[in-house]
């Protein structure tokens, strides 16, 4: 009934903490970018530039002042746009948080 002994080596000290701007969970990031300019890339490669008005747990997204870019060229503008979350590859902040 011997209990396993603790690891011999102590846990290595944390590397230097990341800069404050990188702290926080993905959720914190998403909360932080609401109301900011973002770039949403879909899995198809299409980019949507706009102001993030809100998003939900499925990553459905409401964007304002939306510009659709395909291969770097502007292809469409929408005043508002709802993007279904399953198509989203990433959300990138396009202005400082």
């Amino acid at each position: 009934m011997a209990t396993p002994s603790p690891p011999a080596a102590p846990a290595p000290a944390d590397p230097s903490p990341p800069p404050a701007a990188t702290l926080g969970s993905p959720t914190d990031f998403l909360k932080g970018v609401v109301g900011k300019r973002v770039v949403v890339r879909l899995t198809s490669g299409i980019d949507y530039h706009g102001v993030l008005s809100c998003l939900d747990g499925y990553m459905n997204i409401a964007l304002e002042q939306t510009e659709e870019h395909v291969g770097g060229t502007l292809t469409n503008r929408y005043g508002d746009a709802f993007i279904r979350g399953n198509n989203v590859l990433y959300i990138s902040a396009a202005e400082p948080l």
Binding site: L42, S44, Y78, G79, D80, A81, F82, I83, R84
Partner: peptide, 8 residues
């Protein structure tokens, strides 16, 4: 993929 309403 996307739904765009008429501009509010």
């Amino acid at each position: 993929i996307l739904v765009s309403p008429p501009s509010r």
